[in-house]
Design a protein around this nucleic acid. Sequence first.
DNA 1: ACCTCAGATTGACATCGTTAACTTGACGAC
DNA 2: GTCGTCAAGTTAACGATGTCAATCTGAGGT
Lengths: 239, 239
Amino acid sequence: MSTRRVRARRGEGALLREEILRAAEDLLAEAGTEDALTLRAVAERAGVSTPSVYLHFADKDALVEAVCMRVWDELGRVFTGNLGGDPFLALGKCARAYARFALDHPVQYRVLMLRPSAAPGVPPAAETAFRHMVAAVAACVETRVFEGDPEKLALGLWSAVHGCVSLLIAQPAFPWPRDREALLDHIVRQAGFGAAVYSRLPATLPPSKELAARLDEFGARLAAGADEPEADEPGQSSP
Amino acid sequence: MSTRRVRARRGEGALLREEILRAAEDLLAEAGTEDALTLRAVAERAGVSTPSVYLHFADKDALVEAVCMRVWDELGRVFTGNLGGDPFLALGKCARAYARFALDHPVQYRVLMLRPSAAPGVPPAAETAFRHMVAAVAACVETRVFEGDPEKLALGLWSAVHGCVSLLIAQPAFPWPRDREALLDHIVRQAGFGAAVYSRLPATLPPSKELAARLDEFGARLAAGADEPEADEPGQSSP
DNA sequence: ACCTCAGATTGACATCGTTAACTTGACGAC
DNA sequence: GTCGTCAAGTTAACGATGTCAATCTGAGGT
């Protein structure tokens, strides 16, 4: 056991909760593996005996869940920090920032998303983060670059980005393309364009070859009139 | 301990390996939680003492990895069973079948995809399954409904579908739309259309409002000439 | 000075993965 | 037939983990 913690004053027992959470977060970040998140290790790092954790968390799952709340908070800030400007471009920035956060904090992201969440309801922080996603999409609906239910569209975009980063994190042995940044760029653009054209296509499409011809024609027409960019992020002018 | 297993004949010790794998798979499927996949439980179910597992698997991870191989095999068959016909439609069928498999076998899918894969290389069964995905996409490139690198496009589609099902599985408490089938339909179409238009769009796009107008025009033109479907699955005539 | 009870600890239990040492019994050699 | 060998399998144990019951401790009100 490291340095013994001084006992909290009466009525301030909740201070320990904060220290335990900190210890858990640090442990997770430093070890790089969720296996290192042990009640004993957390307690020792907090300078406290193991069962003391139970004074502030019902069980280990509750502690992990509390850590997740923090991650949700950070994830929410990822969105708020990338809004503003053209909605379509802003959405792209948000998506890329989300992916970067996940890849920069793989352990936290895994614990947050790739774990059987025992909690019954949706944590408020998660709700907030998702609301931000939906809002970013709704702004695109407002400018009519997207059409349809913002929630559904957001789920589609979230699925794409989350799917990519979660595969990158959980299956690192997979023969991924060298350039992760380029891959994510691809994913974000593919998903964004999908959301843009989704609702504009009829339910019944022509067979592949005819569809291909029409898409070609569409691309040519779209490219023909696109030469006045307002991109504030050169080289990445779309989601 | 249940019924003791009769000892294998000399040179046929590998039979136990098969039985242990079966036991592990059954345990996983019946319990519905990976926590139930205990060496002791597996051994008991195989009618054998716990350390006997180590005669055929280096450690627990090796056993889990072996179970995963089986799941990859099944996942590979999901693709081969849904090919043929129009490539774009076939791809949609594959994606839907993939999602159905994942949602029908959530525990297996979680163990397969949402777990830190300890294995250094890519298992052949996984390689095969991914090759099937790429092949289905490559067929769409051949009919020119898609353009570009089939691997990258496949990764985009895979990300979208995997992302959705993995979120559904790992975050069941989230307020998902009632109709899962409809949600998946949305995801698959959004991702498929994204792949279709992805490479046809220029790197620099006009601002949202102008882009919206052009997309509208595109949709109108596409819909105007679409009335001769060759859908073999009424109501779901596109990826 | 004393009592009280929030704050924290001690010691233990069951279960898990894993290892070392031991036993069993089928099969080839003589 | 019997006998030795070695694959096949078991017993017993260790350390680590999550968890709980019982206990201690000491700050703060009376």
